[in-house]
Design a binder for these strands. Structure first.
Lengths: 181, 181
DNA sequence: ATGGTAAGCGGAGTCGGCTCCGTTTTCAAA
DNA sequence: TTTGAAAACGGAGCCGACTCCGCTTACCAT
């Protein structure tokens, strides 16, 4: 395996990401990959060689956005009480997962797989939660919880919820659980 | 729409359910419907006429089992403290959803659709939760929660969780939330 | 008993995901 | 500049979901 992609391959990869971004935007995470390949002017085989499954392509497209969410934790902590920051972040994260059609399902696969090329993203969000929880120690938030468990809880809520009102209620219920002695 | 199925249709339906039961058992909820139809000796069209989608067939196969779970609420209430009963039921329900490969995903579709022929099952489980919550009023369980929200929370947990230990922890976290003032 | 028809049937057809492999292209060593 | 092999390409091919519609069959009214 070479260090860098061949020039033609790199160009194709870039074009795929570009086309995929607008396709996912337009049609959600279940956009036809065949169509994306065609619009990018490559064969379906080329798409799959570069991105071995739908999840890989989808996450590659949204890499920046996810990094951004993780970074939001510090912004929120700087601007609000720790408890408010925690709640706000959980809500933003939930909204992010829920807003894009299919994003939540994609996350499911990504989270489940232990040896994928997205472990860095998982670590980023994981650390964000850890910081938020630590900061809110003085507000009665339990310190014995795995950040990944909290992340999973929010994720689960976005998976099972359809109605935004219900999502809001369940996030608050989760927060209540986090504050239980 | 006739009251009863024609004799041949009824026989085919029965055979489909029988075959589907073993197929789902063996291969999980994503068993090939084409294969099920073939094994039942009918065309794929016949399967889809009777069960308009995978979910319909899957739930039809598991109808008894779901009814059974709902009924467990009363058994548990009769045998344990209300709080223990509530926890035990939530765990049983979660285990049920998590045990069968794909069941949890099927539930997702069923829960989301407001006009399906499974509303009775939803009502059954909903009432089970309502009774459990009411009974545990004296143990500090909040009475201002929609049973459906609680059900959704458990469901979400089973959707997002892979590891049984994590599932157990999240159920307990949920219970803690239920008891917060 | 039989004839008309609603009910039921089946599988060809369409579409999308994903794989596999024979062909083409890049690129760097000589 | 040539050249050969690693890298990349593309699309045919397979599979499964689900639909659609022309053909068949049960069954009831006569």
């Amino acid at each position: 395996m070479p260090e860098h992609l061949r020039a033609d391959a790199q160009a194709n990869r870039d074009r795929l990401l570009e086309v995929a971004a607008t396709a996912f935007e337009r049609e959600g995470a279940n956009a036809s990959l065949k169509a994306i390949a065609a619009e990018a002017g490559v064969g379906i085989g080329t798409l799959y060689r570069r991105f071995p499954n739908r999840e890989a392509l989808y996450i590659a497209v949204h890499r920046q956005e996810i990094t951004r969410i993780a970074a939001r934790a510090d912004e929120l902590l700087a601007a609000h009480d720790p408890l408010d920051a925690l709640l706000a972040w959980l809500e933003e994260f939930a909204e992010f997962l829920g807003a894009k059609e299919g994003m939540s399902e994609i996350f499911r696969t990504v989270m489940a797989d232990g040896q994928n090329p997205f472990l860095d993203l998982r670590a980023l969000t994981n650390d964000a939660v850890r910081r938020l929880i630590s900061a809110a120690a003085g507000d009665g938030v339990r310190q014995d919880l795995e950040p990944l468990d909290v992340l999973t809880a929010v994720h689960g809520i976005t998976l099972a919820t359809r109605d935004p009102g219900q999502l809001e209620r369940l996030i608050r219920l989760l927060l209540a659980g986090l504050r239980s002695s």
